[in-house]
């Protein structure tokens, strides 16, 4: 994959060529899909941790470049290190970042956080992907699949709404990985024309408003949510890079 990154990414030598001093020591390059919530998680993590990241849309790769991805849909490069998969990339950015890690120290809170992360990644994501992408090759027809998926999604969203009743964020009054993962999926639902799924979920709506206005974890003047692609970006196959101007 190194050749692919060399091919499409901005040269490291050109970085900061305007003479500006930047605190970012490493240039992160991300290749991901504009319509994949796993990509959104990486963008949120980089924004939260104040890490500049050049993002390249998978949809804009030509055939030979796409083959270079070797079946992966998401990859990150930092210098000579390349890793794929959202779990690995998010963990890497969180550890490298300028802000405090999102990892919780309290055992119970950390366990609850990872329970919600797990539910989002394993159960919720499956239903969301079936709803939005359909499920090719399965016996059930698309209508049945949509109905099944919607029922399941509603079930998970009800549980999330209940969980948010007494908390500012999903686990406690602090932003955690659970919020990051759920933000990615809920944003994906919203931009895929399923806004009505959260119509009656007041606590989720309030939480989303907080997410949309909170300053990033690293304390810089950026709102992580603003870096996520919108409907127009998806049409234009555009993935915005994460830029940190406020050092």
């Amino acid at each position: 994959m190194k050749e692919l990154f060399d091919d499409i990414a901005i040269s490291v030598d050109a970085y900061g060529a305007d003479g500006d001093m930047k605190k970012t020591q490493y240039v992160l390059d991300l290749i991901g899909s504009v319509s994949n919530p796993e990509t959104y998680k990486c963008i949120l993590a980089a924004s939260e941790q104040g890490m500049e990241m050049n993002c390249y849309a998978l949809e804009n790769l030509n055939d030979s470049q796409f083959d270079e991805m070797k079946g992966e849909t998401l990859a990150l490069r930092e210098s000579d290190f390349i890793i794929s998969g959202s779990e690995a990339i998010v963990a890497f950015i969180d550890a490298r970042g300028l802000g405090y890690s999102l990892e919780l120290k309290n055992a119970q809170l950390a366990a609850i956080q990872n329970y919600w992360v797990d539910i989002a990644n394993v159960a919720f994501s499956d239903s969301v992907c079936k709803l939005i992408y359909g499920n090719v090759g399965k016996r059930k027809d698309k209508h049945t699949l949509t109905k099944d998926s919607l029922e399941k999604i509603n079930l998970y969203l009800d549980a999330l709404d209940k969980q948010l009743k007494n908390n500012k964020y999903i686990v406690c009054n602090k932003y955690t990985f659970a919020d990051l993962h759920w933000t990615a999926y809920i944003h994906f639902i919203l931009i895929s024309d399923y806004e009505d799924l959260i119509d009656n979920k007041k606590n989720i709506q309030d939480w989303l408003q907080r997410i949309k206005s909170r300053k990033s974890q690293c304390g810089q003047e950026i709102v992580a949510y603003d870096n996520l692609p919108n409907k127009t970006d998806i049409e234009n196959k555009k993935l915005s890079s994460v830029r940190i101007g406020d050092f």
Binding site: F81, E87, V90, A91, F92, A95
Partner: peptide, 15 residues
């Protein structure tokens, strides 16, 4: 402690 080891840990866990 190292970010790269942490990333590899998550990568292999996922696999």
């Amino acid at each position: 402690r190292k970010a790269r080891i942490l990333a590899k840990e998550k990568y292999y866990i996922s696999l």
